[in-house]
Amino acid sequence: MGLTTRFLVNTAQRALKDGLLAAALSGTSMAARSKADSGSAVAGVNAPAHWVHGEESIRREDVSAKHTLVGAAVHTASAMLWAGLYEALQARRERRTVAGALVDAAGVAALAAVVDLKLVPERLTPGFQHRMSRESLWMVYGSFALGLALGGLQRREEAPTVRDLRE
């Protein structure tokens, strides 16, 4: 396996791990804030399933495979996608630092919020914004950023950077 291929595979593996951690933290925050705001912890988790099942998913307040599992899967896949951007930003740094991890994670989370809540058509929004307050959305995207940063800081000395491609 060539250096470039190893670099890309390593970056993709890190993005998957970062995305899983970010999805877990933001999903936990989403459930807690959904419970506080709408009375149902799974209402926010169900909502992303509206990509597949329409508006019914946004209104659902009970656990179901159709809405809860699909909603969690959509949320996790989205987190992994954004984690790919995060890892690409981290790989561009000469050195991975705590400050760099936090800045990149906050930037990706902010971009995700703008794209999710302002730029995409309603059908492609996360849906959970209909079940939570504005303050709760800040907490969800903040916990998403924290998950990215924590994931990115794990084994940071072993993580690839563009410098590795030049050597």
Results as ranks from 00 to 15, higher is better:
residue 143 S to A: 14
residue 101 A to H: 00
residue 21 L to M: 05
residue 165 L to F: 02
residue 14 R to K: 11
residue 138 W to Q: 09
residue 38 S to L: 04
residue 137 L to W: 04
residue 22 A to W: 01
residue 53 H to Y: 14
residue 87 E to W: 06
residue 117 L to D: 13
residue 114 V to D: 06
residue 53 H to N: 15
residue 111 L to T: 12
residue 118 K to P: 06
residue 127 G to S: 11
residue 42 V to N: 09
residue 144 F to I: 00
residue 150 L to Q: 08
residue 32 A to C: 13
residue 131 R to N: 10
residue 149 A to T: 05
residue 84 G to C: 05
residue 90 Q to G: 03
residue 95 R to K: 15
residue 83 A to H: 05
residue 140 V to Y: 15
residue 149 A to G: 01
residue 159 A to L: 04
residue 151 G to F: 04
residue 103 V to R: 02
residue 98 V to N: 02
residue 34 S to I: 01
residue 105 A to H: 00
residue 103 V to D: 01
residue 31 A to C: 12
residue 93 R to W: 00
residue 94 E to T: 12
residue 7 F to V: 01
residue 94 E to K: 06
residue 78 S to K: 11
residue 127 G to P: 03
residue 98 V to E: 11
residue 87 E to F: 03
residue 17 K to T: 15
residue 77 A to T: 14
residue 14 R to L: 08
residue 94 E to D: 14
residue 42 V to F: 08
residue 113 A to C: 08
residue 54 G to T: 14
residue 138 W to H: 11
residue 67 H to Y: 14
residue 135 E to L: 09
residue 9 V to E: 11
residue 18 D to E: 09
residue 61 E to K: 14
residue 8 L to V: 10
residue 129 Q to S: 07
residue 76 T to S: 09
residue 19 G to S: 02
residue 153 L to A: 06
residue 134 R to H: 14
residue 148 L to G: 01
residue 158 E to D: 14
residue 76 T to G: 04
residue 45 V to H: 04
residue 15 A to C: 00
residue 140 V to Q: 15
residue 5 T to P: 05
residue 30 M to F: 09
residue 132 M to S: 06
residue 71 G to S: 13
residue 46 N to D: 09
residue 154 Q to F: 12
residue 145 A to P: 00
residue 19 G to Y: 01
residue 159 A to Q: 11
residue 118 K to S: 11
residue 86 Y to H: 02
residue 4 T to C: 08
residue 157 E to T: 13
residue 48 P to Q: 15
residue 166 R to T: 07
residue 155 R to G: 14
residue 33 R to E: 13
residue 71 G to R: 03
residue 156 R to D: 10
residue 66 K to C: 02
residue 126 P to C: 12
residue 128 F to M: 11
residue 19 G to L: 02
residue 91 A to T: 04
residue 129 Q to M: 08
residue 14 R to S: 08
residue 20 L to T: 06
residue 25 L to I: 03
residue 39 G to L: 06
residue 107 G to P: 00
residue 50 H to C: 10
residue 51 W to P: 04
residue 71 G to K: 04
residue 110 A to G: 05
residue 105 A to F: 00
residue 86 Y to S: 00
